[in-house]
């Protein structure tokens, strides 16, 4: 089936099988920053913003994305500059192996759109659909709050 999506600001038309998972479609476009970590909608490594809302793209079909705007980690930069969430993850050591990081940052970026000054509990709650095996989450929380500060300063 033919689908039309806006992927990181660029319109694309592709032919996909109905059963193709959205995450496989996205990765097939060369945007391999979106990862697959489980089979059961548990880990959130495949999280992408669909019309601005975080979705687990292992649990959507690519055909369902037609007409939608998708933002992956590759689309986070704004005018060539790192998104505050990207800068903050590095500054606060919010990542180790980097595998959960794209999904974690996208979920966090969506949180900050709604609430640029989240409490620790707000952040922990918001990212509780994204698993991280390395960091123990402490520095991820700090990174999200720091990104909020960067956003509020601008």
């Amino acid at each position: 089936m033919e689908i039309n999506v806006t992927l990181n600001g660029t319109q694309r038309t592709d032919d996909v099988e109905p059963r193709q998972l959205l995450v496989d479609y996205i990765r097939g476009t060369g945007n391999t920053g979106t990862h697959i970590g489980c089979d059961t909608t548990s880990c959130g490594a495949c999280t992408v913003l669909v019309d601005g809302t975080p979705m687990k793209t292992c649990t959507m079909f690519a055909v369902q994305a037609t007409g939608k705007s998708l933002t992956t980690v590759e689309g986070l930069k704004q005018n060539g500059a790192l998104h505050p969430i990207q800068a903050a993850f590095k500054e606060k050591h919010g990542l180790q192996c980097g595998f959960c990081t794209p999904g974690m940052m996208l979920t966090s970026a969506a949180l900050l759109e709604e609430n640029p000054d989240p409490s620790e509990d707000d952040v922990r709650w918001a990212i509780s659909g994204n698993l991280c095996r390395c960091t123990g989450y402490v520095n991820i929380v700090k990174a999200v709050q720091h990104a909020g500060e960067l956003i509020r300063e601008n």
Partner: peptide
């Protein structure tokens, strides 16, 4: 119910 991202869908 589920987790925050699943609740979005």
């Amino acid at each position: 119910v589920a987790d925050p991202i699943v609740r979005n869908r």
